[in-house]
Design a protein around this nucleic acid. Structure first.
Lengths: 215, 215
DNA sequence: ATAAAAAAGGGGAAAAACACCTTTTTTAAA
DNA sequence: TTTAAAAAAGGTGTTTTTCCCCTTTTTTAT
């Protein structure tokens, strides 16, 4: 039987190493490499490394995270079969990974046997989704409003949001951004509208939920 | 050579299982149990199970998290040797675990070989601390102010903070808590003072940092 | 060239922040 | 067990910030 090559990308070395030994214990899978972040993977692929059968990709990583990695893969290696593997179970993250082509999304609290099944199913059918993740997605689809549709924020808007999460007045933010307070007021108003929030508190909560600011 | 019993407490089954096989590969350590949360551990200890040589305890868990578990152990099983094992690297969490008696705090991105060293050192010397964690603690000690000293919030203050993280006016919060807006203003003022924040934004950020509100 | 957006601004209402000040309730100590 | 101190709750009013509506100018893109 031919063995399927697996690459693990996870900054938690302890986990990555442990996971590797688990995967290696399956006799039709072999871990070829473990990388600590997306950019190590991208470097190797850019240097001509051939795609493995499956990439197990963590979402939350420093340097180049799961979503950034998926975006790169979607563009330059769309054939890559990626299983996202993460403890982040928020809609936004899951949606983002799947939108960018992940073949499945496993939460790290799954039963170990499920990993084997996921690997097999991705090899056979090209995708694998747990009930848990499917439920999350369904919930998000039936969400009263459309919290979906990726909102693309401008550079200045992001700068503004970050400052709005600090204990600053809009006047101070305006000074720091070398803009008129009225322009800041415009940013504020526009963001309230497109993000569907009512006040600065809502803006801050949005920023945190969507990881625009790190806590 | 006698083998040291280890118990792993971690809700991420995949990780727990993988970690167990890693620990079992050391010939002087044996994983006796893996539990999914603190309360499973507490149940077994309450039922008379004897303490293992070392407990590897995750911090972020549903049901009964690491800090709650440490508090229980401190009270009822102060002899327990616990190594906290977590990806949370924020001061507050680390401090809280160590204050409650953890013998060490390992971040999940450590080199796998360091785990063995940590286990050995805890057995031999009773504690083990990485440079990384020591640095975090030092930084917190030298922190301009005293962000330390666990602040004990009252029930009503916590209720208020949670509502303050929603897009509500103080008037609405007062109504919801059946209190005068002026009492709410008192809470606000008092919290600003004891938490060292300047405005409601600061309060919200504090609440999130200290996990008073879930996001 | 023209439309769309970003930036800047005026004026005003509402909410938040702040400053004192009073009464009641709880807690701790004499 | 009274008394002092501290915490909780409420009152009135001022200043500052936030929020909202609407207009003009400047920049950007088609």
């Amino acid at each position: 039987m031919k063995t399927n090559e697996v690459i693990i990308v996870d900054d938690h070395l302890l986990f990555a190493r442990s996971l590797a030994s688990l995967v290696n214990s399956y006799d039709d899978y072999t871990v070829k490499f473990t990388f600590q972040n997306g950019s190590e993977l991208v470097d190797k692929l850019s240097a001509g490394m051939k795609l493995p059968a499956i990439i197990l990709l963590d979402v939350k990583m420093p340097v180049m995270d799961g979503i950034a990695t998926m975006k790169w893969l979607k563009k330059y290696q769309p054939e890559a079969k990626v299983l996202a593997l993460s403890m982040e179970d928020d809609e936004q993250t899951i949606l983002s990974m799947l939108r960018n082509g992940a073949k499945g999304y496993l939460l790290k609290d799954i039963q170990p046997t499920l990993l084997k099944k996921a690997l097999d199913t991705v090899i056979d059918q090209g995708y694998f989704h747990t009930e848990q993740v499917t439920n999350t997605l369904m919930k998000s689809l039936n969400h009263d409003n459309n919290t979906n549709k990726e909102i693309q924020l401008k550079e200045n808007e992001i700068r503004f949001i970050k400052l709005a999460c600090e204990e600053k007045t809009y006047k101070e933010i305006a000074d720091e951004m070398f803009l008129s307070p009225k322009t800041i007021d415009g940013y504020r108003h526009h963001l309230f509208e497109i993000l569907g929030v009512k006040n600065r508190i809502g803006l801050v909560m949005y920023a945190i939920k969507h990881k625009i600011v790190e806590i």
